[in-house]
């Protein structure tokens, strides 16, 4: 049996999640020992034809061409894993979903007729079946390694869907919201980053999207009690994961 073939695909995205994979400097050679990196244009233009055992997909579906391409990727892939906020929630570009994209085009581009885009930026799972969604903007490289490792060994990935607070407390961080009154999205955001921002005295920005059963309404109420204006609470939910269902609904509820 040959080595499993891995492909890395880019859709509407900034390439940051693919770079996280290249950032696995110490581990990359070992990964290459166990898998064949068959398609990864960010790293090499040498391309091995499909089908592929694992496809890692970065980016959202933003154009009509991408709708077709993701279906082709799915057909060529045994497992399809999305990586990052764009691929799992539509990304920062999904902010256009709350407005009229035609209007943006007429303002931004001199020749809007050259632009071929969809009304909405949507996650990969809106178009094809996804086997695993890895969160983050960008993803955490060690979580990526863990997911690859789990798929190669046929086991469950150790990727908890609980809150960032769990990571903060395990690290021994003092809660920035309780001790300093800094608004933090940690209690409604999925763990995985290692609680980076609270470790540096900043509130969580929600890069990893909604945690399991997030109580966004209760957190918003508390933020407003801390003195955060309503429109700023809406903005907090309109970040990299604005179009993730629970964050989208909270933004809409507060925006009304």
């Amino acid at each position: 049996m040959g080595k499993p073939k891995i492909a890395v695909w880019k859709f509407a995205s900034c390439d940051g999640c693919q770079l996280s994979m290249l950032d696995l400097e110490d581990e990359l050679l070992e990964i290459a020992d166990h898998v064949e990196i068959a398609y990864f244009l960010e790293a090499s233009r040498a391309v091995v034809k499909g089908p592929y055992d694992i496809s890692l997909v970065e980016g959202s579906v933003s154009t009509p061409e991408e709708v077709e391409r993701i279906r082709r990727v799915r057909r060529m892939s045994k497992y399809l894993i999305t990586i990052g906020a764009c691929a799992t929630a539509g990304g920062i570009q999904a902010l256009r979903n709350f407005r009229n994209v035609r209007e943006f085009m007429s303002i931004v581009y001199a020749k809007p007729e050259y632009i071929d885009t969809l009304e909405k930026s949507t996650p990969i799972s809106h178009h094809v079946k996804v086997d695993f969604e890895l969160r983050g903007c960008p993803i955490n490289k060690y979580q990526l390694l863990e997911v690859l490792n789990a798929f190669l060994n046929g086991r469950k990935p150790n990727i908890p869907s609980y809150s960032v607070c769990m990571e903060c407390k395990m690290r021994g961080n003092v809660c920035v919201m309780v001790a300093k009154g800094i608004p933090c999205l940690g209690p409604v955001t999925q763990a995985g980053c290692g609680a980076i921002c609270p470790s540096y005295q900043r509130g969580c920005y929600g890069c990893f999207g909604p945690k399991e059963t997030p109580n966004t309404g209760s957190l918003s109420d508390w933020w407003m009690r801390l003195g955060v204006p309503r429109e700023d609470v809406v903005r907090a939910f309109r970040g990299f994961n604005a179009y993730a269902e629970e964050f989208r609904k909270e933004g809409e509820r507060l925006g009304e």
């Binding site: 607070c165 769990m166 407390k169």
Partner: peptide
């Protein structure tokens, strides 16, 4: 339950 964030802080502290 309307207020609880199920964030787990209470259990870890």
């Amino acid at each position: 339950a309307e207020r609880c964030l199920t964030c787990g802080n209470c259990t870890l502290v």
